[in-house]
Write a protein that binds this DNA or RNA. Structure first.
Length: 334
DNA sequence: TAATTATGACGAC
DNA sequence: TCGTCCTAATTAC
């Protein structure tokens, strides 16, 4: 599934291509016919992400809430503006956000960055007539012959402007909310480092973790504790911290907990900037280049069960935790 | 052609 | 803890 970084990137695509435009909404698959009819013809006014949840705002106090779940995806097609700017994932970097006023936040500060990596968006400037799938990874599809393209497969929602379509498939959540309901959903979520910046958020995370008897490996995946972390980042963050996944939250040294928060903030920013889950950023340049060249070699422990740990050589372990696969090094993370 | 897999989350026991 | 929901790509047979 798209972990937090991809949802922030998708949000950015909507800011770039849809916000400010009148949107035609439909449900080719039919399972969102009512919601689509409600949104149809309204102007999109906002696009935001909190953790793995995305909120698209429309005139008339309508918000489309989307959660991609394990395998949901947005497919963009048409004359797509490939933005190489970061809208700071909703423009709240450097600001402390008070939950409950989520929908009244300040405006984005665009930051320019250089995209890198084979699957990331690198073009700047003129729109490109193409297809772009945005899910846990991003890839450009074959060329577009006609616009709008025929919907393919199970398209729950199609949003279309004069020049761009976005097709949503496989979401675990897709519903129209009013502002109060959006605040309600957001209010239940743990802090997202790209929105809840500053010491208060770190405090909130630290307190939540150090109050609970639950294993830290589960807490990191708990969206009420911290937003946006999924199975890949969980495994990688714990390894980077040399932290045993089974340690109860309340027994994890406070410094480790704070480190986990700062490291998540760092990895998330890198993920949003590059479009990839880069978790080995502290390798030396040569090793880094080698790792990036081979997709299977990108992580410290994720999907490396049975292989020797990159640090100590011990075989990476695989076990079930929270109904998900947990990868870790029993020696480094003892 | 079928089985398997996936970077979630929720509700019923 | 288990079943369920959502879909497509990949792998096995």
């Amino acid at each position: 599934m798209p972990e937090g970084h991809s949802v922030h990137r998708i949000t950015r695509q909507f800011e770039r291509n849809f916000v400010g435009h009148v949107v035609h909404a439909s449900s080719p698959q039919g399972r969102f016919a009512e919601g689509a009819a409600d949104l149809d013809g309204r102007r999109m006014t906002d696009a935001r992400a909190v953790g793995k949840q995305m909120f698209l705002g429309f005139e008339g106090d309508r918000w489309l809430r989307v959660h991609l779940g394990m395998y949901g995806a947005w497919d963009f097609a048409g004359d797509i503006l490939m933005d190489a700017t970061i809208a700071s994932a909703n423009g709240r970097m450097g600001q402390t956000n008070q939950r409950g006023t989520f929908l009244e936040g300040p405006n984005p500060d665009a930051v320019v960055f250089d995209a890198a990596g084979e699957n990331s968006i690198t073009s700047i400037g003129a729109p490109r007539r193409t297809r772009l799938r945005m899910s846990e990874s991003e890839k450009e599809g074959n060329e577009l012959e006609t616009f709008p393209p025929e919907p393919v497969g199970q398209v729950r929602v199609r949003l279309r402007t004069d020049t761009v379509v976005a097709d949503l498939r496989g979401p675990t959540a897709c519903e129209v909310l009013d502002p109060a309901q959006v605040e309600q959903v957001v209010g239940r979520l743990g802090p997202d480092p790209l929105i809840d910046d500053g010491p208060a958020a770190q405090e909130r995370f630290t307190n939540a973790v150090r109050r609970k008897p639950t294993p830290i490996g589960l807490l990191l995946m708990d969206q009420n504790v911290v937003s946006g972390i999924g199975n890949v980042y969980r495994a990688e963050l714990l390894f980077r911290a040399r932290q045993n996944p089974h340690t109860p939250g309340k027994q994890v040294p406070e410094e480790h907990v704070r480190h986990l928060w700062r490291d998540w903030a760092k990895l998330l920013r890198i993920g949003v900037e590059t479009g990839q889950m880069m978790t080995m950023d502290d390798l030396d340049p040569e090793a880094y280049r080698a790792a990036m060249a081979n997709r299977a070699d990108r992580h410290w422990v994720y999907k490396r069960e049975g292989l020797p740990c990159r640090v100590c050589g011990t075989n990476i372990a695989l076990e079930e935790m929270g109904a998900r696969k947990l990868y870790w090094c029993p020696y480094c993370q003892a």
